[in-house]
Design a protein around this nucleic acid. Structure first.
Lengths: 194, 194
DNA sequence: CTTGCAACATACCAAGCGGTCGGTTATTCT
DNA sequence: AGAATAACCGACCGCTTGGTATGTTGCAAG
């Protein structure tokens, strides 16, 4: 990787962390510059604006990370148990800062979806991709599932509940609440089976 | 109501709307001043800081509105159907702006819970109150419900899913997604019964 | 009638923001 | 080697922000 590319990646990584912690608007470019130990000129050489940087973080950091995570949870023999394991392991290995900061995508959806069209469309696309992953996984084992299930609806329900759980636990600052909701969610998911 | 009290109420109402639309940090005092047609001196006569105004909006506008709404949904003969009716009517009478702006309390939780302790504690208290409302309602009809249910867990699950649904639909800008999640949520709630 | 305080108005401030621009160094291509 | 361009620097700009200090008005009590 060239030096320039390394600089760019460094900016992306730091920006992703800052946006995760403080949201997009509350993220200050000067903080990113300090953490990267670069000048404002360097940043604006690689990104045309703060917004462009935000989009790049979304596309090059959050999206791949996110999809990979869900994919690995769903491409198992039994996606129902795969999801439950995925959620349960989240509650276990969840650090304190992750409880506090929540899910980057959920955060951005909250903050930016009704403010900036660029973010909105990117988030929407991401959600649809994620939903498709779940739908595909459920369809694979549809023989084992209850009849009359609306897969897409179920997929959005799962994602909504998970996001709601992360938001909810921000106020209590501990995992307990999150774990409770997840436990109930796993119960719901397992009940999808015959 | 005295003129001064009227001014104060007007500030609260406008601020509540602005915070709902743009979040706390993105809400500009100057916008509030313009909409209220008052001076900065007037605002700072009634509130010591922007933060204090935010707290007042939370306590005097959001909290009572919120509790009243849920209370009326839960203090019916059958709270299970009461909740389902409540959610379903939400999807029906939901205006476009409400889809876009989401739930004020959920928004504040996302934005402020990990930034300001004052907001965090107020939100936490609110969530606990709401959960208690649900738990109480469920306990009243516990004879009709499945055995071994963790009421508190169920309560938080319902709230989490509802919040997640509002956040999710921000990106699609229409009710459809929200309705789907709500439909699935009602299915879950009804399945609490024997 | 005057004294006093609540209820405002207005001008001002420092700090931080995203963004720009002219200049400098490093690298790469011919 | 020399020219061109990528990569980066840092001072500066306009603007908005929350907040303050001083001044003014009007009602109400003594």
């Amino acid at each position: 990787m060239s030096d320039a590319e390394q600089t760019r990646q460094n900016i992306l990584t730091v920006a992703a962390d800052e946006i995760h912690q403080h949201g997009f608007n509350a993220t200050s470019l000067s903080v990113i510059l300090n953490r990267c130990e670069i000048s404002k000129g360097a940043l604006y050489h690689h990104f045309t604006s703060k917004m462009a940087l935000g989009y790049a973080v979304f596309e090059e950091i959050y999206t791949p990370e996110f999809l990979e995570l869900w994919q690995s949870a769903l491409t198992v023999e039994d996606p129902v148990e795969g999801l439950c394991d995925f959620f349960t392991s989240m509650t276990e290995q969840m650090s304190c800062s992750e409880v506090v900061c929540g899910c980057p995508l959920n955060n951005l959806c909250e903050e930016m979806a009704n403010v900036d069209e660029g973010f909105r469309l990117r988030i929407l696309s991401m959600q649809e991709q994620l939903n498709q992953l779940i739908v595909d996984a459920l369809m694979k084992i549809s023989d084992d599932l209850r009849e009359g299930l609306a897969f897409s609806q179920v997929g959005y329900f799962i994602v909504a509940t998970l996001n709601g759980a992360t938001t909810l636990s921000k106020s209590s600052r501990n995992k307990e609440l999150f774990q409770q909701v997840i436990a109930e969610l796993c119960f719901y998911i397992r009940a999808l089976k015959k």
